[in-house]
Design a protein around this nucleic acid. Structure first.
Length: 278
DNA sequence: CCTTAGACCTGGAGGC
DNA sequence: TGCCTCCAGGTCTAAG
């Protein structure tokens, strides 16, 4: 589910709800959730920690506590919910895999239907890119150091589709299947265009489109197609999608019918006339 | 270097 | 209702 705009929306929500609060108790009930240590060790280490700062790098959420960098990836379905009481709804309760008691009596619940999400706990690092879970993570899509030149440098020798490169978190961090389609459309490029055929101008258009689209999506609190929500509020950017999940609808620019294809086995939407294959 | 299939998981939607 | 297949905002691995 969450790409950069959704993770950023969650980050802002949690910062507002939790900043400065102390974790007074932890219960992790899905052992695999704790990725880099036994769940019991993560429970012990997080107990007593204060939630001091809330960061995001790509699709990773990084909660900075007194002694640790607590890294979470929600993958497809993970959600953080701040609740007064444990979830009453049986469906939510069933998929609640961790509960963090807070000093104000509230509970931070991690809910994840598909159990894909993971959490890592590390001693504090000066640079988040140095954390093992984030070692392979490239520049965040909103990082000022990400320029057209920088993207060109990273991909110009590669013979993979541009959409595949955009989904590669070591190339740019934070773009997923929804925004990759929207970025290719905005840049006027067929998502199957081969990276080595693109020039600096193409890369500059891609980076510019990426930053604009991601920032706009953040303003609309992310995109909800199936299940994304932050604090039980869905996003609204699905109302502004130009190609993703728009199969059969007319292109907003040329009225051609939006098509759905597969790129690297993932559903991909494009306007066959506005987006040129290079 | 690149592609593909399969794993990891669960549930919703649609066909019959 | 039920059963079956396909699909899903992600990422990792093995194999060719």
């Amino acid at each position: 589910m969450p790409e950069a705009p959704e993770v950023e929306t969650v980050r802002r929500t949690l910062e507002r709800q939790l900043k400065g609060h102390q974790i007074t108790g932890v219960s992790i009930t899905h052992p695999k959730l704790a990725d880099n240590m036994p769940a019991s060790e993560m429970e012990e280490k997080l107990t007593g920690e204060h939630l001091n700062a809330f960061h995001r790098l790509g699709k990773y959420l990084i909660l900075e506590t007194d002694h640790y960098d607590w890294v979470a990836h929600m993958r497809m379905e993970g959600k953080f919910l701040v609740m007064d009481e444990l979830p009453e709804d049986e469906k939510i309760r069933k998929h609640t895999h961790a509960v963090f008691d807070l000093d104000n009596g509230k509970k931070l619940c991690y809910v994840d239907t598909r159990k894909f999400g993971r959490m890592d706990l590390y001693d504090k690092a000066k640079d988040f890119h140095a954390l093992p879970a984030l070692k392979k993570t490239g520049l965040d899509v909103l990082d000022q150091k990400l320029t057209g030149e920088a993207l060109y440098h990273r991909i110009h020798k590669r013979n993979i589709p541009i959409k595949t490169a955009l989904l590669d978190q070591s190339v740019i961090a934070g773009i997923g299947n929804i925004y990759a389609d929207e970025i290719c459309f905005a840049a006027g490029l067929d998502p199957r265009s081969v990276c080595s055929h693109l020039d600096v101008a193409d890369c500059t258009r891609i980076v510019q489109a990426a930053k604009e689209i991601i920032e706009e999506a953040i303003k609309h609190k992310g995109t909800t197609i199936l299940t994304f929500s932050s604090d039980n509020h869905p996003g609204e950017f699905q109302n502004f999608l130009k190609v993703h999940v728009q199969e059969g609808k007319p292109c907003s620019i040329c009225e051609s019918t939006i098509e759905r294809i597969k790129v690297n086995n993932r559903s991909t939407y494009l306007c066959p006339s506005c987006q040129k294959l290079k």
